[in-house]
Design a protein around this nucleic acid. Structure first.
Lengths: 168, 168
DNA sequence: CCGATATGAATGAATG
DNA sequence: CATTCATTCATATCGG
């Protein structure tokens, strides 16, 4: 059953070795020689190409970063005054339990304030918001504001500066 | 290995809002800031995480294109992926004799010999890989004898891991 | 319950 | 390296 897959499907051994290198050995950005050796070694465990190893590390780095910012802020406030059938507002903020090396869910910063107060559509001028990237803000202490969101969607997609997910 | 992690089940309100944004507002690839705001708003209607919003847009985009491809494309051979590359005319007489349909960059394969003979240099366009490889700071000073990739691999670790991807 | 479908999630591959 | 595309996997939901 040879499933000619268009893309590389790493075997469990290959994955194990790669993760071992990445997490335990701390190999994040292997050198060319290292990638070459890893590749040559991994070939023994199944079909693989040099670029597969290279891409694997690139993706791993990128996703590691993404998943790292997880704070599991799914603390949705038990608050539904509108009577919406929201349905499941279970306070499921059950401690993430992010213990596994490969077990992490990506998420943004723990921005849990649901008090959206009509955030400015585009707070930045062009594409760089030095020191302005954290929407979370840092209001020291005080939070006794109202806690109900109301606005309707105000997202605009006009001359959006920058394009795409550039958090920078 | 059961990855049974209940997945997000969007509420009707969340779906409605998301679709409103996608179709009516034309929001296809929201920026992180936008995703974040959408997330903050949607979470009021039920359990939701940042990544859920992110994935939703990714999937919508992909499937939108998928559907479109199914309609716009004329009836001509749907090119079933029955296995072989079918209709591809292999006029792939590029450089490497091994014509790979996936023809992509950095294709350095030499077939299935899993033995290294002389670590051939990489025939890929260096401008892409080695010219762009700027690793600001990979493993912390593991140079000269610390961070080889060794673990269970017995690959020929000459032990010279001096050069890293960064060609600086 | 069961199989088909819709869709959330994961990840290899690419692009700039 | 940041972001996006493409393909695949996993599962919630639906019809019978």
């Amino acid at each position: 059953m040879l499933c000619r897959r268009s893309r590389w499907t790493p075997t469990t051994d290959q994955i194990r070795i790669l993760k071992e290198l990445f997490y335990n050995k701390g190999v994040r950005s292997p050198t060319v020689e290292q990638v070459q050796r890893i590749y040559l070694q991994l070939k023994w465990y199944g079909k693989i190409e040099f670029k597969n190893v290279y891409f694997w590390f690139v993706n791993q780095r990128a996703r590691e970063k993404q998943k790292k910012k997880n704070l599991t802020s799914d603390v949705q406030v038990p608050k539904q005054r509108t009577g919406l059938v929201g349905g499941s507002i279970n306070l499921n903020f059950g401690s993430t339990s992010s213990a596994d090396v490969g077990g992490s869910i990506m998420e943004q910063r723990g921005e849990d304030h649901q008090e959206v107060k009509t955030l400015p559509l585009f707070p930045m001028h062009s594409e760089d918001i030095f020191g302005n990237m954290k929407t979370t803000s840092d209001r020291g202490g005080g939070h006794g504001g109202g806690s109900y969101i109301s606005l309707e969607l105000n997202l605009s997609c006009e001359g959006k500066a920058g394009k795409s997910f550039r958090s920078r």
